[in-house]
């Protein structure tokens, strides 16, 4: 499909587009953020995507999780992602892992990727992801959502942003009370993907050592240098 990427070719050169086909991205979590991340990475033509999630789709996911629909309730989110991408962009190889990232499997799962996308729903596993990303020298894009609010930052090995900035207050956040709507996951995931493209092509300015705080209730978007 020669024309598939033609609309990308004014912002990324042909060479840059082609280089994405050789890249391997890991998406940890296939829920609200993960569904949008996987969809966008596949449409960009990232050659290999590993999608991991231990959950199955539930009815309460339908309000926001892009890959969920009334027909796949009860099915593995990771396996649904793989099937979906086969129809969106069969040029992309998706490795689906129906399981949870933990201390015992993190190194094996993370190794060999060019970039990691955080689509997790808890800080404990995010810190684990950052630890192994650092160990294996892989950049990682952090994204988190809660109701009207979101956060994005890009973490390179050695930055240890999450360890230094988080006060260790809690594993979960205000999303426990607020829930998440349809638009915050899409917004935060889109910004994460723009960071992935810049990491992989060397273009632009990253959110490295900078923390983007998103507030769609007041429409405030602020970047803090950290």
């Amino acid at each position: 499909m020669e024309k598939r990427y033609i609309r990308n070719e004014n912002m990324l050169s042909r060479e840059e587009n082609l280089s994405l086909h050789e890249k391997k991205a890991l998406v940890v979590g296939c829920g609200g953020l993960g569904g949008h991340l996987i969809e966008q990475l596949a449409r960009l033509g990232i050659g290999h995507i590993t999608a991991i999630d231990g959950d199955v789709f539930e009815e309460s996911n339908l309000n926001r999780q892009l890959l969920s629909n009334v027909e796949n309730i009860g099915q593995s989110k990771a396996l649904v992602a793989k099937d979906h991408i086969a129809r969106v962009n069969p040029e992309v190889k998706v490795t689906a892992i129906h399981g949870i990232l933990d201390e015992t499997n993190a190194e094996e799962i993370i190794r060999g990727h060019d970039v990691i996308c955080d689509a997790l729903d808890n800080m404990t596993t995010r810190l684990l992801l950052q630890k192994f990303a650092e160990k294996l020298n892989i950049p990682m894009v952090y994204g988190a959502i809660a109701g009207w609010y979101g956060q994005v930052t890009t973490i390179f090995p050695g930055d240890n942003i999450l360890g230094s900035i988080y006060q260790g207050a809690s594993n979960k956040g205000i999303e426990q009370e607020m829930g998440n709507p349809s638009f915050t996951p899409a917004l935060v995931a889109s910004i994460e993907v723009s960071e992935v493209v810049k990491i992989l092509t060397g273009k632009g300015q990253l959110l490295r050592n900078r923390f983007l705080m998103i507030n769609t209730l007041d429409q405030e978007y602020e970047v803090f240098d950290i």
Partner: peptide, 28 residues
């Protein structure tokens, strides 16, 4: 954040400091 830098809860503040306080956001 105290003046944009990571701060501690018991850190002494100075006149004119800006303190920014964020709740946990952890969803995905």
């Amino acid at each position: 954040l105290i003046n944009g830098f990571d701060g501690k809860f018991d850190q002494p503040l100075k006149d004119g400091d800006t303190v920014s306080i964020f709740p946990p956001v952890g969803g995905g």
